[in-house]
């Protein structure tokens, strides 16, 4: 018996269905690839939200700004190849906000920590208190486990199935 595993992508995905005798807003049903196809590069669009925590979809295309967060974040590459570059922060660059990612103003002032090239299925640590940047030569998609923060974008009415 052979198997064919189905994995969605920006170019080809098939959305499922939700048929409930209930308010569909309670389920917030969306699709990562559909959200990424409609997003601007590096918008951090929430697709899951659990009180202060969330998951954000990012369309990687070109280079992002530099981000940092006061806690660990994790990126799972869902399509394409994405390069993650890491630097230490300067003493005056450590985030003062409580949660979520924030853009740095300017370049990180600390030492270069390294880089990771990740492809579909790879999970990448975005370490607490480090600066990181994403770049991709072709469009890719990352799902980021994080907390809601200043860069989080909410557009539930646009991304969710409501009827």
């Amino acid at each position: 018996m052979s198997f064919k595993t189905k994995v969605g992508s920006l170019a080809a995905y098939e959305k499922g269905t939700i048929e409930l005798n209930d308010d569909l807003k309670h389920y917030a049903f969306s699709n990562i690839f559909e959200v990424a196809n409609a997003a601007k590069p590096y918008e951090r669009v929430m697709v899951a939200s659990n009180l202060e925590y969330c998951a954000e979809v990012v369309r990687a295309e070109g280079s992002s700004a530099w981000y940092t967060a006061p806690h660990d974040e994790f990126a799972i590459v869902m399509d394409g190849e994405i390069e993650f570059t890491f630097f230490q922060l300067g003493d005056d660059q450590h985030p003062g906000h409580k949660a979520g990612a924030v853009k740095l103003t300017g370049e990180p002032k600390g030492k270069r920590m390294g880089r990771i090239r990740a492809r579909r299925g790879h999970e990448v640590l975005l370490p607490k208190g480090a600066a990181y940047r994403l770049s991709a030569s072709a469009p890719g998609v990352a799902l980021i486990q994080t907390s809601a923060g200043p860069e989080s974008v909410e557009r539930w009415s646009q991304i969710c199935v409501l009827d």
Binding site: K15, L20, A28, S30, N31, F33
Partner: peptide, 17 residues
């Protein structure tokens, strides 16, 4: 009592209330 069904495919995201 049944409320219905959800079919989730690759890339789909859904809350379980």
């Amino acid at each position: 009592n049944p409320r219905g069904r959800i079919v989730m495919k690759s890339g789909d995201v859904c809350a379980m209330p």
